[in-house]
Design a protein around this nucleic acid. Structure first.
Lengths: 356, 356
DNA sequence: CGTTAGCACTCTCATGTAGAGAGTGCTAGT
DNA sequence: ACTAGCACTCTCTACATGAGAGTGCTAACG
């Protein structure tokens, strides 16, 4: 509707004032008035001048008023501009770095997910979210078959990054324990190092080709592998600190709280939103209009991918009111993404974990 | 403060009226007036008579008024009485039974926990909670060690009921894969069928006795076993449908919502509350004053234990406003407890799972 | 003696009004 | 180009008012 693109319109004074408004609003949560900018601002302008500029900024689409004679509030466009070219990121303080690294050391992969989610929430005072990898994309470390009863077999798949998934499968005939052990070892040795997706495809091909001349053991092996390697198609979500959001003034209305929680109940939706951030190295920020979840509620998502080597595994990030301290949170999410990637790599590929 | 014990004081008319008040309140959520009881009630009494009785009931401690000239609201004592001797439990309808059984069939143990929690929430419109067993109390089915890097070993413990826990342990020296496989098999065979707690104790004794003359392999075995079998000391909690509670009128205040969620963030507390229900066969109901969590918020817990054979594994139940439909919910929780127990037993001890 | 009708009393809740406060937009003056 | 001043608008709070709901009490009734 308005000429957002034309940033040339924004003089350095306009930018200064917009920045001031955003920073003040992030801090206070109330619409900010021309008076307060005039008083607090560095540039010695009067409220009236500020008002002119703010009226312009509103025309450009960077500010809006909840109603006449209220102060002004930044729009999503303003936040984008702020993040893109006015923000001064504050590096994560050494104390927090240490705290994060200590809490993200050692432990199994699923514990790491939980810790990361909790750290995100705790240090940002927002809700922390971690999307765990779909097993299909991970690299096989080992597979194990355990007889449970009759023809039922518990299949456990371990990825090279320490993720574990399991599944009960039912075989055509009962298979003795010793044979299951042999098959486990055999499959582990032959497929270790490939992604489950590759393995599934290869097995499928093999099955079609050799269907005729398969011997009994091979047939059993392939049957087990086929079923077992189909675990974990969909990624999981670990959420922490939802109660953090309840203290935000933007959630003082129970109706909004309810809508929010109903949105969260749909994990698949969260995954979809977060997964938009998996490509591209850095931190991505989705504000308001960018996604259906956040547009209704004026919420934003700051997220990044974590990876081992060049293989992206999942994403992690925080969700909170659009009015959030991006200067702190963006570096925080970035650092957590890096640290988690590193923790996963160190724990499961032999790097020395000691480093003080 | 008042003579709750003396139920003799309650004539059959008093009981009838109290019951009416409770049922009405459960339905409507507003304080119920003498008028509404007189109108709706079966006994052809006038409002004034009802008033007298209600005043008495208030003296006995079964009713209270939020303020003068509001209707009356049942107290925790009233609910207890209602549940103990006035309620007519409504059996779970056949349709719901089938729905539950279909959703609780097959699958791995952790999926069962999730499904049970979801079913509880969905069918009761309250929050569903399942406490998963502490691994220490479960019976070992198999153990597996998988090398991850250097001296790190991933240990996977499977219980006979299909629960899985895992842990990364660090050994004193690097152990080759083949030896880990041998040790896994050896430990599985020798300890299968005992609880982890027993195994830990036995290992400790053995270690002390034979410390001197242990050979290298045995030492390694015991080292691995000691660390590996110490997984899962604390039970986990699976919660579902927290957003159900947000639509209850008793949570129309954001402050209360916040307190509630903060209370839930402390999983240990939930476990403690639910665990009160593990002993004794049937369903237990904790109302208001019974626990710190619920007393602040006028919430109640309806819970029961699930078990395989005579070994109780964990508890499951629902949490919601004290004003809930006990006649429906108590049988529901009971049925879910039985069905979950059965599902766990069938899936992992060879019973025929087919039954239509 | 239990039951009921009537009535005064209390408390809540919704509504309406008034005034204060905050913030803006506009205009005229510097 | 900036600023001071002023009228205007809108929200928020406090306060008063009245309706409605429900009780407790008392006196009358079968």
């Amino acid at each position: 509707m308005t000429d957002l693109k034309d940033h040339g319109k924004l003089g350095s004074r306009d930018r200064e004032i917009l920045k001031d408004v955003i920073l003040t609003y992030i801090l206070s949560a109330d619409p900010v008035s021309s008076r307060s900018v005039a008083k607090h601002g560095k540039l010695g302008l009067s409220a009236a001048s500020i008002r002119n500029v703010m009226a312009d900024l509103e025309d450009w689409g960077y500010l809006m008023q909840p109603h006449t004679s209220a102060g002004r509030v930044p729009t999503a466009a303003a936040y984008h501009l702020f993040i893109g070219s006015m923000m001064e990121a504050r590096a994560v303080p050494a104390k927090e770095r240490r705290y994060i690294q200590e809490n993200l050391k050692g432990g199994a992969a699923d514990e790491l997910m939980g810790s990361a989610s909790h750290l995100l929430s705790e240090l940002s005072s927002q809700m922390g979210i971690v999307v765990t990898p779909a097993m299909g994309e991970t690299v096989l470390k080992a597979v194990d078959f355990i007889p449970v009863s009759g023809r039922k077999v518990l299949c456990i798949v371990v990825s090279s990054t320490g993720f574990i998934d399991n599944k009960v499968i039912e075989t055509e005939e009962e298979i003795p324990r010793e044979e299951l052990v042999r098959i486990s070892n055999h499959l582990t040795e032959s497929f270790c190092g490939h992604t489950l997706r590759e393995i599934r495809e290869r097995l499928l091909r093999q099955m079609v080709e050799e269907r005729a001349q398969m011997d009994r053991v091979l047939a059993r092996t392939i049957e087990l592998a086929r079923s077992g390697f189909s675990v974990g198609e969909t990624p999981g979500v670990v959420v922490d600190g939802a109660s953090m959001l309840l203290s935000k003034p933007e959630l003082s209305d129970v109706q909004r709280v309810r809508r929010m929680f109903e949105a969260f109940a749909d994990k698949a939706r969260l995954v979809k939103i977060l997964s938009q951030c998996i490509q591209g190295g850095g931190v991505r920020v989705l504000i308001g209009e960018d996604s259906e979840l956040t547009s209704e509620l004026d919420f934003s998502v700051v997220a990044t991918a974590y990876a081992v080597g060049d293989r992206p595994l999942g994403t992690l990030g925080i969700l909170g009111p659009s009015r959030m301290d991006y200067e702190k949170i963006i570096p925080l999410v970035n650092f957590l993404g890096e640290t988690l990637s590193q923790a996963l790599a160190e724990a499961f590929s032999g790097e020395p974990p000691e480093r003080r």
